[in-house]
Design a protein around this nucleic acid. Structure first.
Length: 653
DNA sequence: TTAGGGTTAG
């Protein structure tokens, strides 16, 4: 109290003394300062605190925080005033008191920020923060939400292991964490694509006798949809209903979106129509629901039905948003109706929405795909004039657009500009360029680009490695491909199916068919294979003239059912034609059709090229007619070179 | 917690 009597001059001298005299920090002196600070804070004399803040020691800050721990607002104000001071930034214990108080007063955002700051800027590990929080819970009223918040902070800064260690440690300390923290961690695992780990953690959670809440069930639906396990995802919905938990619109939306992505639009529509009934009238479609269905129809090649859904949406009083229009714009564009896409965009503007980068990106992408470089450039200028910021998508689209239209050097120049401006944040654009450089046999250029990624702090991803590996394989340099593969495994990037298929193709091209078969066996053992793997091996057998092996494999694949597609038949048809067994090849077309597979332009070209070498024009025309009647879309080059002259000849004779 | 646009394989 006596300090209150100090004149402002003597107070200043007192503070100056604090700056100069380190000896002042003896406990007696600290008590005096502590009381002085507390009095001034209570009287809201912040100027005093502000002047003193840089001189506060760790222990003083800690004592002040303890003193005011039951007045969250006051404590927060003190924190705001002294947040830059060394006494606070050095003290994990003081920060933990703050965190306890913030969480206790439901000020989660500030608590999360503080935790993140401790881990990112101050370098404390999640476990160190946890231990400090546990220790400080002796002086603060313990609150489980603090630990939940720490798990959340860890997932937000992306430390997957950190969050898991926190959960584990809490169990060891017999502190229970809430289902919300588990959900948060599970959600994080899904976001980073670790679905396998998701299921492990989920099972672990259940083994500790936690009960799923609505969010957990939604996460299960989300995970199952990501894995295309649609019927299991639907059964989660029924499990929810059985356990008396009413699904919310998010769960329905994830199911509907999952069904669309799994190419089961009819299920998506059924769920969409029945969501009201299933939820006892509690849930009705929202904008996300409509957007999912609209996207489903667009990706299925039916943008006009998608637009009908948009009209229905408006009728039902659900307001379309920018994503609704962006989806439809892309839907029309990707199906070749750019004019319609522009019309939809105009409607959007009339409805008061401004085209964003997603809308521009779609237009630019599809203009480039159509070869309309000037149209794309025009739109890009328009984008800049309207101050719409370009993003990573824009950069990739421009890079690919230029490469695809034969301007690889322009693409490289553009890419360098992006990199120089520090605008490159992900590996996408690099991967596109690496792919085009490999295609043009410039593997050393591609390798340079990978090196530049490291220099810029960009981590090459699976696609980067896969593209380089494929480049080497295509160039017939399987040794280098395997060397890159080994490097990739060393940096903890697991090979995926695409990469294994590339290596398999490389081995087949090198006629190392025995090694290829060994690789396929290994892929089968790991359960990482698809129809492409088998087609590649089949093609390898055919190229190597291994007739018996080829036919054995073909029979096995057909027995397997799902491991056969049009390409399988094309390989065999080509093989038979090569050996002059044209009739057998033609018979395979009937087998194909009986299996519900439609011959494609490759089948068409293979058969007609082979037939034209040995038979009359009349036969060529007959085969063309037969294939077209069976639904084949003729390859234009083959038609011009072989069929058209044959038709003329047949007519003339 | 859910929805839009860009990369790799036969």
């Amino acid at each position: 109290m006596f300090l209150g009597l100090f004149s402002s001059r003597s107070r200043t001298l007192f503070i100056r003394g604090l700056h100069i005299g380190k000896h002042f920090t003896s406990s007696g002196a600290e008590d005096i300062i502590f009381r002085a600070v507390c009095v001034n804070i209570r009287q809201k004399k912040w100027k005093f605190v502000d002047q003193l803040s840089s001189s506060l020691t760790n222990s003083l800050v800690y004592r002040v925080f303890l003193e005011f721990r039951s007045s969250p607002q006051m404590l927060l104000e003190i924190y705001q005033r002294i947040r830059g001071c060394k006494g606070l930034s050095d003290s994990l214990e003081s920060s933990c008191i703050l965190i306890h108080v913030m969480v206790g007063s439901r000020n989660y955002d500030d608590a999360l920020d503080l935790m993140k700051e401790l881990m990112i800027s101050k370098g404390y590990s999640p476990l160190e923060v946890l231990e400090a929080l546990i220790t400080s819970s002796d002086v603060c009223s313990p609150n489980r939400d603090v630990f939940d918040a720490l798990v959340r902070a860890c997932t937000q800064i992306g430390t997957t292991e950190g969050s898991y260690e926190v959960i584990k440690k809490l169990r060891m300390h017999s502190y229970s964490i809430s289902i919300h923290a588990w959900n948060n961690y599970l959600n994080h695992l899904l976001k980073i694509g670790h679905v396998g780990r998701f299921w492990m953690v989920y099972r672990e959670m259940i083994s500790y006798e936690y009960y799923e809440n609505m969010n957990t069930f939604n996460l299960l639906i989300y995970a199952l949809c990501k894995e295309c396990r649609l019927s299991e995802a639907v059964s989660v919905l029924y499990r929810m209903l059985k356990s008396g938990i009413l699904p919310n619109v998010v769960g329905f939306n994830m199911l509907i979106d999952g069904a669309c992505r799994a190419d089961d639009l009819s299920l998506a529509v059924i769920l969409f129509e029945k969501m009201g009934t299933i939820s006892n009238g509690f849930v009705s479609p929202n904008a996300v629901t409509y957007n999912c269905i609209i996207n489903g129809y667009c990706k299925k090649g039916k943008p006009e039905i998608a637009e009908e859904i948009l009209n229905k949406m408006i009728k039902m009083d659900v307001k379309p948003n920018i994503r609704t229009y962006a989806t439809l714009v892309d839907g029309y564009s990707r199906n070749g109706y750019l004019e319609e896409a522009f019309r939809v965009c105009n409607n959007m503007v009339e409805n008061g929405l401004i085209p964003n980068s997603a809308v521009y990106n779609s237009f630019v992408h599809w203009l480039y795909m159509e070869g309309d470089i000037s149209g794309a450039s025009l739109l890009l200028s328009n984008m800049m004039e309207n101050y719409i910021p370009h993003d990573q998508f824009t950069h990739s689209i421009i890079t690919k657009g230029l490469c695809r239209n034969g301007h690889v050097n322009e693409a490289l120049k553009f890419h360098n500009w992006v990199v120089e401006k520090n605008l490159s944040e992900d590996a996408f654009s690099h991967n596109i360029l690496i792919n085009y450089l490999c295609r043009s046999n410039n593997i050393s250029g591609a390798k340079q680009l990978v090196c530049s990624m490291f220099v810029r702090g960009l981590i090459p991803d699976q696609v980067t490695y896969g593209t380089i590996i494929d480049g080497y394989c295509k160039a017939g340099n399987i040794e280098s491909a395997v060397a890159v593969y080994t490097d990739m495994v060393k940096v903890d990037k697991n090979p995926n199916l695409v990469i294994l298929n590339s290596i398999l193709d490389g081995l087949c091209k090198e006629e190392s068919v025995d090694v290829s078969r060994f690789l396929v066996d290994e892929m089968k053992r790991l359960n990482v294979y698809d129809v492409i793997s088998f087609n590649t091996l089949l093609n390898g057998y055919c190229s190597a003239g291994k007739i018996k092996e080829a036919f054995d494999l073909f029979t096995k694949m057909r027995k397997g059912g799902f491991l056969v597609n049009e390409v399988t038949y094309n390989i065999m048809i080509n093989f038979l034609c090569k050996f002059g067994l044209f009739e057998h090849a033609k018979e395979l077309v009937s087998v194909m059709l009986s299996q519900g597979l439609t011959p494609d332009f490759v089948t068409y070209t293979t058969l007609l090229t082979s037939l034209s070498k040995k038979d009359s024009s009349e036969e060529v025309v007959k085969l063309h007619d037969y294939l077209v009647l069976e639904g084949v879309i003729p390859d234009s080059q083959t038609y011009e070179a072989i069929v058209s002259p044959a038709i003329k000849e047949t007519y003339v004779s």
